[in-house]
Simulated scan of single mutants.
Amino acid sequence: MKFTPLAIKKQQFRKSFRGYNVEEVRVYLEMLASEYENLLQENKELKEKIAMLETEVSTYKQIERNLHLAVTQAQETATKTLENAKKQAELIIQEAELKAKETIDRAKLELAKIENEVQFLKLEKERILKELKNFLSSELEKLNLVEPATKQETKEKIEEKIKLDDIIKNLDQ
């Protein structure tokens, strides 16, 4: 049986000889019904409050999930950004190393080219000096074959030969 305040108020008891005082029972039931009605009202208010609080808790849980999701996404974004920055830095370093290697290789080729030119010029210098020496030697021999007319002319030829030897020495340097 379900109790309601109205059912409590309307409850009828059988009358018996020497039974309870009807008026006392009625007053008691009236107080009981009133108290029961207050408890039902309080229970209703508490249920409403529980429903409202459950709604708030649900809202806060949704906010918490959203915040957790945002934090997770921010962490993932930060991680991806950091990884991308590292990859980009590695690419820049590799590119710089490649350019440096290319520059060094070009410089080495240029150096080898210059060294070859220097070697060629040294050989050319030696060839020209040999030709010049041979030419001067043959000219001196020609001069020696002709008889000197005087000692003065012989002295001039010797001085000229010394000058030619000095020129050849200067060319060697």
Rank of each mutant, 00 (worst) to 15 (best):
L109C: 11
T150K: 01
K99M: 03
E95F: 02
Q152E: 10
S138E: 15
F135N: 14
E95Y: 00
T103Y: 07
E139Y: 12
L121Y: 03
K157P: 01
L98P: 01
N134K: 13
R127E: 05
E117S: 07
K101T: 14
T103S: 13
V146D: 12
A107K: 15
I158A: 12
A96T: 12
L132N: 03
E131Q: 14
P148G: 08
N170C: 00
L140Q: 12
E115L: 07
L129C: 05
L143D: 11
E159T: 03
L145W: 08
N170H: 02
E147C: 02
E156W: 07
I93N: 09
T103G: 06
R127S: 07
E131G: 11
L145N: 13
E159P: 00
K113Q: 06
K101A: 15
A96L: 08
A112D: 14
D165H: 07
L171D: 00
K122H: 10
L121F: 05
K125D: 01
T154F: 15
E124L: 07
E95T: 08
I114Y: 13
E124N: 10
N134Y: 08
K101S: 13
D165I: 12
K108Y: 09
D166S: 01
I92Y: 02
E147Y: 03
E160Y: 06
A107M: 14
A149F: 13
A112F: 01
I128N: 10
L164H: 04
Q152G: 07
E141L: 14
V118Y: 15
T150I: 00
E126Y: 04
E141P: 10
N170W: 00
I167W: 02
K169M: 02
A112Q: 09
I128R: 08
Q152D: 09
A112L: 03
K113T: 11
E156Y: 04
N144I: 02
K161T: 09
L164R: 04
D165S: 10
R127G: 01
N134A: 11
P148R: 12
L123F: 08
K108T: 12
L171G: 03
L111H: 13
N170I: 00
I162K: 10
K169S: 05
I168Y: 00
I167R: 01
K113A: 03
Q119L: 04
K151R: 07
L143Y: 06
R106V: 08
L121S: 03
L132I: 08
T154A: 15
T103A: 11
L121Q: 01
A107S: 09
E95R: 03
N144S: 03
D165N: 09
A107Q: 15
L98N: 07
N170L: 04
K130V: 00
L140H: 11
I158D: 04
S138Q: 15
K151Q: 11
I168F: 02
K142I: 14
K130D: 00
D165Y: 07
